[in-house]
Design a binder for these strands. Structure first.
Lengths: 173, 173
DNA sequence: TGATAATTGTTATGGACCATATCAAATATC
DNA sequence: GATATTTGATATGGTCCATAACAATTATCA
């Protein structure tokens, strides 16, 4: 496995390696054989994940939300009043790394830290009005431009089966 | 989306956030609701990918091969005589980043760079005898300990369907 | 109650991975 | 034969991830 995300204009497009063949005399460079690689779970998983994140970023360009930021907003909306540790650990984010992330979201007035009155060590997280509005718009963009693409590609039934299998791997592998 | 790999002993296990409940008086911390997050393609994809890579590393601990290194060995074996640019770009690795990777594999005598006689700029890549032997052992470990786990979890048919859908996403999304 | 331990948010820091610019050597192009 | 391109390589910066450590606060319990 491996595969890097690689931006738009990059000449490292993984798929078409071995192009740029010489039209001249010598035996031209044929495309490489992926072989067993295309059957390797990790390889294809990683490649798919990079493509999906890439598409997500494009869809959310107008809102400037990364997948991670989107997940934070979603989780805070669904679980208002939780502290940083709870939100971060649920998302698999280490607390130290969550600080800068929140600094960013807070500086954009999307969410706010509130000192808890019960436990003055912790910061309760809530979405601001702007945060709720942005998240609502983000959800629509994701649904119509991002997730909808999966239905076009796989069909509704396969899409649900895929999500289910991935969830099973994530939880039981 | 988000989710970090998180080693074994970490206290950041994403699943069981909201444990450590206080047995004392106050209303204890209930588990957080993932909500729409568990249906987000990117979120579940990333989580599954991390789990799979984690398991891959465990299975290959005796050979000390990362997923990326394994993919390089596989590709070089399948396509002997190709140069660094071809192998790297096929895997989506940028050439500058491929140098250190090859330095590593070469220092372990798993593969070798050979100056091409046709084009003295390029380095032809080949597996050493040790490289072939290690790769053979790696394949067996992956097949029996890693990929086999997918069959146990999903069944043969679902496993193939999953790989197919992921490949489709990787290529057409 | 008061000493000690644990928790929370935070900072600092280092590692792994990824991306770009740039270079010398070699080759291609015209 | 002058110029452009390609190849492997170096240097460098960015992002993400992980650990240690700290101050403030709270829990524990002798």
């Amino acid at each position: 496995m491996t595969v890097s995300r690689t931006a738009e204009k990059s000449s490292e497009k993984p798929a078409d390696a071995g192009k740029g063949r010489k039209d001249a005399g010598e035996l031209q460079t044929e495309a490489l054989q992926l072989g067993e690689l295309s059957e390797q779970l990790g390889y294809v998983l990683k490649r798919a994940q990079l493509k999906v994140f890439e598409n997500f970023l494009r869809c959310m360009a107008s809102l400037q939300l990364t997948p991670a930021q989107f997940s934070v907003l979603l989780l805070v909306e669904k679980n208002p009043g939780r502290n940083q540790t709870e939100i971060a650990s649920t998302l698999g984010i280490l607390r130290p790394n969550f600080v800068a992330m929140l600094d960013n979201l807070e500086s954009r007035d999307l969410c706010a830290r509130i000192r808890s009155t019960n436990d003055r060590r912790s910061h309760i997280l809530v979405l601001t009005d702007k945060g709720k509005a942005v998240l609502a718009r983000a959800k629509k963009l994701v649904a119509t431009k991002h997730e909808a693409r999966l239905n076009d590609l796989l069909g509704q039934a396969n899409r649900e089966a895929l999500i289910g299998m991935l969830a099973k791997i994530a939880n039981e592998f």
